[in-house]
């Protein structure tokens, strides 16, 4: 067991997934199966290897700093679950 059931609950929380107890048990097994494969890879000595951040050897892909028209406001809000006064509306967020 690499990850405990509590670890899985925490990962689910971070991803905002609501899981039943059965699902947690099942997924704990699945994730640990997966991680065992990585544990195998971990056995390799990679001390002399630079970490790979990107797999394709392409660098410095830029765009020029030019402003272009944005979407019309009705399109911006078209996929919003809720909108009010030209704004996205979400359940109240208490800041203080």
């Amino acid at each position: 067991m690499i990850l405990s059931r509590e670890d899985v609950s925490q990962v689910a929380f971070l991803a905002r997934l609501e899981l039943t107890d059965e699902e947690k048990d099942k997924l704990t097994g699945h994730i640990n199966n997966l991680l065992q494969h990585f544990a195998k890879l971990q056995e390799l000595d990679t001390d002399a290897v630079e970490p790979t951040s990107h797999v394709i050897p392409v660098e410095n892909v830029f765009r020029e700093d030019k402003a272009r028209p944005s979407l019309p406001p009705q399109d911006v809000l078209a996929n919003a679950p809720e909108s009010q006064d030209d704004c996205f509306a979400v359940p109240r967020i208490v800041e203080t």
Partner: peptide, 11 residues
Amino acid sequence: LLHVEGDRSHI
């Protein structure tokens, strides 16, 4: 985030 009256926040 805009805090308005009621049970919603605006963005």
